[in-house]
């Protein structure tokens, strides 16, 4: 087995062990922290699909996180509590938004694409602010977790943890199939040399759009999970800096590897949690650390871990 696979399996095994270890150590805080890490990992994995494989630098990914979270918030507000309704709505609403946003932004490329995806996410952000009925700027409390019946009670932090973990595994598995399929190879061709792809006769736009919609939909699910994690949604979840954070997680963890963003989400949120306890200027410390990692490892943290595994193995 190659080193990267080993690194991935070790990471996922460690994630599976978090709740029992945290409980044994009487530190339930970590169950919440790692659930949050995995929620953002799902968002980052979805971004990696289009960024790492398709070369599409979307700077508006938080919009889909917000749409997914608001889907849960708004449905709950109106008394709809069913988990399937929540998650299906989050998935399809985010997909629909990605379809519209992608349809316009994918006509551009390079820095224009970055700007236009950012602009769209700002529109979605201000849409959230303007939803006075749903709390506007102040946000919206969610009365109860998405209801999947007694057997899957998301109110229990450990159950919720494994629910997120299972979804992360599903998306990692689906993603790893997709990136190796014809569709995934096509996507990588677009990243490598789109002019060549078009000259070969690939109508690249529709494939990029499909990937963009998939990524948005998966990020919508992450948003629904986020709403369940915090039982609260507000526009701040889709602030543009949040898009930047997700982007950072992908780059920090390692572009184009799917598992890399899981490392990235963990590193980013753990650093944030540790540093913010030490100093209120934690972002000033985080910045240089991120820059160092990116400078010293083109393949991100995941590349470093894999390298370590290779040395030992």
């Amino acid at each position: 087995m190659d080193a990267k696979r080993v690194a991935a399996i070790i990471a996922l095994a460690l994630l599976a062990l978090v709740p029992p270890v945290a409980m044994a150590a009487d530190a339930p805080f970590y169950v919440g922290l790692f659930a949050r890490i995995m929620v953002f990992a799902i968002a980052a994995v979805s971004l990696d699909l289009i960024l790492g494989y398709g070369g599409l630098v979307s700077f508006g990914h938080a919009a889909y996180l917000g749409i997914g979270a608001y889907a849960v918030g708004i449905l709950s507000f109106h008394g709809v509590t069913g988990g399937f309704a929540h998650f299906a709505t989050a998935f399809f609403a985010a997909a629909a938004a990605a379809l519209v946003i992608g349809f316009v932004s994918l006509r551009t490329s390079g820095v224009y694409f970055i700007m236009i995806t950012l602009a769209f996410s700002q529109m979605v952000y201000f849409l959230g602010v303007s939803l006075n009925q749903y709390g506007g700027d102040d946000g919206l409390n969610i009365a109860r977790h998405s209801n999947f019946g007694a057997a899957l009670d998301l109110k229990d932090p450990v159950v919720f943890y494994y629910f997120v973990f299972a979804l992360l595994l599903v998306f990692l598995f689906l993603g790893s199939r997709i990136v190796r399929s014809r569709f995934g190879v096509l996507l990588q061709g677009v990243k490598s040399n789109e002019r060549r792809m078009i000259a070969l006769g690939f109508p690249t736009f529709r494939y990029k759009l499909a990937a963009f919609v998939m990524a948005g939909a998966i990020c919508g699910v992450a948003g629904a999970l986020f709403a369940n994690l915090t039982l609260f949604v507000s526009p701040s979840i889709m602030h543009w800096t949040r898009s930047g954070e997700i982007l950072m997680m992908v780059i920090l963890g390692g572009l184009g590897s799917l598992i890399g963003p899981v490392f990235g989400a963990a590193a980013y949120l753990i650093l944030e949690s540790v540093l913010s306890r030490l100093t209120e200027h934690w972002q000033a410390v985080l910045g240089p650390i991120l820059i160092l990692v990116v400078l010293f490892s083109k393949t991100g943290l995941y590349g470093l871990f894999a390298m370590g595994a290779r040395r030992r193995g």
């Binding site: 199939r177 997709i178 014809r182 569709f183 995934g184």
Partner: peptide
């Protein structure tokens, strides 16, 4: 190329 499952390789 809307084929998502089988590895192209």
């Amino acid at each position: 190329s809307f084929r998502f499952w089988r590895p192209a390789e």
